[in-house]
Amino acid sequence: MSLEYSITYKAENTYENWVHDAYWQFLIIPQLNRSQEFVEVDFRNSINAINEHSINGYGFQTIRIHPKKKFKSISFIARFKLLKKDINPFDFEPEQDHEAAYKTIEALEFRVNHAIFLKTTPFTAVPSKKLNLYTFNKEYSIFENLQHLNRWTSEHLLFKTDVTDVYSTLDEVLQKRQGVCQDFTHLFCALARLNGIPTRYISGYLHQGNGYFGDSQMHAWAEAYIPKIGWVGFDPTNNILANSNHIKVAHGKDFKDCSALKGIVYSIGTNKTRHSVEVQSTDQ
């Protein structure tokens, strides 16, 4: 069975003074993959600048805009219609041989193949005193350990907006023990990687219930690689596995590789930015 989603992404920028030159790059188009299929993509901006479809350095679909005339305000609206296969997150063969799996992840070949998602980045660096914050129990399978970590993360931090910002690193997050999905995901990634599991940061949309309205933002969760199983999605903010409510846009080492909007604006003075995201499902 498939679910049909309709996603609306809006951004609005206003500037105190004329902007003579600007570039924006949006990383908001849902990824096409095993479980995601497009029906429609529609993107517009308020000053009729050309929307260029391209890819970013990691190969994800982007939309780039470079207006050819000056402006003081610009707004963008994107509408996606998407078919999402109803997936059961537990639909895989559980790991039989724990020991073999742990051996695999320790092997050089595995570490080289997955080097990029085993690396520590500024956003996923655990303070040196807390390197043993979460250690896997090797009597359990990797999947089970990751599930525990997912729960542990969701309990270790308290979800609260406006405590952290997009620049917050883990030492700050661990000290405050509060944050948003970005912080939960960074912590999960960091601790899974410390235990040798390749883990990537996912940005995307979360469907929060039929007919849900509101100025919700983009969501973040993680995917961890388990030998013989592959990439499995964990949402540590909600202590669930990623499921058919999670619509993936892009992945990367951390938030920095996935930020939804990058802009280079040549202007002086202040500016205001507003974003909103709306996800609706139309059951089929």
């Binding site: 570039y23 391209s54 970013n56 990058k262």
Partner: peptide, 19 residues
Amino acid sequence: LEFRADSALGVPGLFSAYK
């Protein structure tokens, strides 16, 4: 757009064209 955002020396979108 791909590397240092504060750089005025480069060309936005150059890396995509390269890729």
